[in-house]
Amino acid sequence: MFAAWAAQVRAAPSGRADPARDVAFWARQAAHYDAGQPALPNTVAWLRGRLRGARSLLDVGAGTGRLTLPLAPAVPLVTALDHSPDMLAVLRAKGPPAHLSARCQGLQDALRDPTLPPHDAVLSAWSLAYLPDLRAALSGLLRLSGRDLLILEDDGVGSPHVNLRRHLSGQPRPQRASQLNAALSALGHPPDHHRVQEARELTFPDLPALLAQARLPLPDAEALAALRPHLTHDGAGWRYRWTFDVHVLHVRMGARP
């Protein structure tokens, strides 16, 4: 299982298993990252409920604070960990509360650093995909989790156009949530597996703009027929809406087998 994960990560054409390349990737993305991400109100509400009573939260791969900032009011002490200085600069520019500290450090280094203490809750949202040594990463996150480990991922079911593009190209659907579930179970910490439904909506002035975004290898008429169930026209343009699941793997550290 862990060897298969490592092979999958190293085979990624982006080469982001190399920490330097991943940092460079986020340097290019940081300024416009937030604009391209959907809001996750249901996920935030779900996490707030699980964080009730926690005294500290470590957000691993916190980035621009997409989840860290809305969760910060629920926890007295918050640490935002990320290896991208550019992403953390965006977080700092948002004026985080005084009880939130940003720490620029890669996870592998952080796990060996005695100055990073355990936290009641550890959150890792879409932050493990390019770490080849999954066993070490999960074992380290479990050590840092005093009460709860919360891992957010997906199983490759995203927007309708991306799903269709993968199908047409014969590209296998990544199933990281299922892989992480199995890996945690193999380490003796089977998680509770929850699905939180969210919605995403994009707007386009006309159909050519939508088709340019979708980039489907189909004639325009066929592409529109495939996307039609998700489209509405409101007079000003086209609304493209779909729902998706956020998978939450929750390990309760007091509930070990």
Rank of each mutant, 00 (worst) to 15 (best):
139 S>D: 11
47 L>W: 00
216 L>A: 10
117 P>V: 11
119 H>Y: 08
128 L>I: 02
241 R>P: 07
30 A>D: 12
75 V>F: 13
177 A>E: 03
124 S>A: 15
47 L>G: 03
39 A>M: 02
164 L>I: 05
26 W>V: 04
62 A>L: 13
203 T>W: 12
211 L>G: 01
85 P>N: 12
110 A>P: 06
252 R>N: 13
47 L>D: 02
138 L>S: 07
157 V>G: 04
157 V>Q: 06
70 P>T: 07
16 R>H: 15
226 A>E: 11
51 L>H: 05
109 D>E: 07
147 R>F: 05
235 G>L: 06
88 L>I: 13
230 H>L: 10
101 S>P: 12
33 Y>L: 13
51 L>N: 04
100 L>V: 15
12 A>C: 01
30 A>Q: 05
112 R>C: 10
199 A>F: 07
167 H>T: 11
142 L>T: 00
41 P>S: 05
233 H>W: 08
170 G>H: 06
257 P>G: 07
8 Q>A: 12
153 E>C: 09
241 R>M: 09
190 P>W: 15
47 L>K: 03
178 S>Y: 10
47 L>R: 02
162 V>P: 00
208 P>V: 00
95 G>D: 05
203 T>D: 14
171 Q>C: 06
84 S>C: 09
141 L>H: 01
33 Y>Q: 13
202 L>G: 03
181 N>K: 14
234 D>V: 13
3 A>I: 01
256 R>E: 11
108 Q>G: 12
235 G>N: 03
196 V>R: 01
254 G>K: 12
198 E>A: 08
162 V>R: 11
165 R>Y: 00
63 G>Y: 00
215 R>M: 14
138 L>G: 06
246 V>G: 00
217 P>S: 12
35 A>Q: 14
33 Y>H: 09
16 R>P: 03
31 A>E: 11
165 R>C: 07
31 A>G: 06
65 G>Q: 11
82 D>P: 01
21 R>Y: 03
76 P>N: 08
199 A>I: 02
69 L>H: 06
171 Q>H: 05
59 D>G: 08
132 P>D: 10
190 P>E: 13
88 L>S: 13
20 A>N: 02
168 L>E: 02
46 W>L: 06
186 A>W: 02
114 P>I: 08
